[in-house]
Nucleic acid binder design. Structure first.
Lengths: 147, 147
DNA sequence: TTGAAAATATTGAATATTCAACAATTGAAG
DNA sequence: CTTCAATTGTTGAATATTCAATATTTTCAA
């Protein structure tokens, strides 16, 4: 009699797979909303981080928005062309570039925020208040325990 | 006095962001393990799905491994070159291609499974048994409620 | 039975991402 | 001080992904 083995468990039971699947689905929904303004999810994240009005270095930003450096550089290039953000050399460390959000960027960010809030509310409705906050709590703690 | 608004909540509090972050981190860890065999995560998923020995169509496979069709086609091309899998025309519906895992693929899949199990056990240790199963349950239910 | 629509997989061009190398600046040890 | 290593950001080439168009087969209505 064969003993049950983890190695035979279907892919759908792996945490890594469930995370990928959930992420894909939620991201797809968010993408759909933000596409109303023609903006990819990553750009919304960038705008949101910068909307505190402070300057953020590229490295800091890359960490915050989950992009690696070259990808971020190229995305920022586009956003600068669209005058959503702008670069300023850090006066205290001239290796660094500080990114700031423009007025136009702020206006767009507000619109995007409300589209994103729509989605969160939609999730709350179909998935439930309690499940949502419990899931968030568990995700935060997983991320913590991974560092 | 300004009332607290969801729209100002930091990006780190959004479910979509937490999912992306957790997914990124867990995937990174898994990638690291599987790189011992030089195999990307997606190929492991493909092998795992095919390791039931049955033929799976490209569409079915694309859904299961969370890749869109053209990407899967090109990845399968590589795996066929590496003789990990092979194509057979579906005799019942000649539009379809059925994918099968090869003997070499099975051998590789076993090694990959044990690397993946290592990771899951590492997560169980640092994150805890209870949290892990609770998180899995919530993720499954989120995915369910999104369809 | 025929012809139009749907389903399935692949292709090639356009786009995006990644890797490795680079340039500029700072930090720090001798 | 000077030099060498580390940090920061960008670039270009290589790679990968996506979108739109295509080919093939099946389905189904007329």
């Amino acid at each position: 009699m064969a003993k049950p083995s983890k190695e035979n468990s279907p892919i759908t039971e792996h945490l890594a797979y469930l995370l990928a699947q959930a992420n894909r689905e939620i991201n797809r929904q968010l993408e759909l909303r933000l596409s109303k303004e023609g903006v990819p999810v990553e750009q919304w994240r960038i705008l949101k981080v910068l909307s505190d009005g402070n300057g953020h270095s590229m490295g800091e930003l890359a960490d915050a928005v989950l992009l690696n450096h070259p990808t971020l550089t190229k995305m920022i290039d586009r956003m600068v062309s669209d005058t959503l953000v702008y670069r300023v050399q850090d006066p205290n460390d001239r290796r660094k570039v500080l990114m700031f959000i423009s007025d136009r960027g702020k206006v767009l960010c507000k619109k995007l925020n409300s589209l994103a809030v729509d989605q969160e509310e939609h999730i709350l409705e179909s998935y439930g208040d309690k499940s949502t906050s419990e899931l968030k709590r568990l995700l935060e703690s997983l991320i913590d325990s991974s560092n």
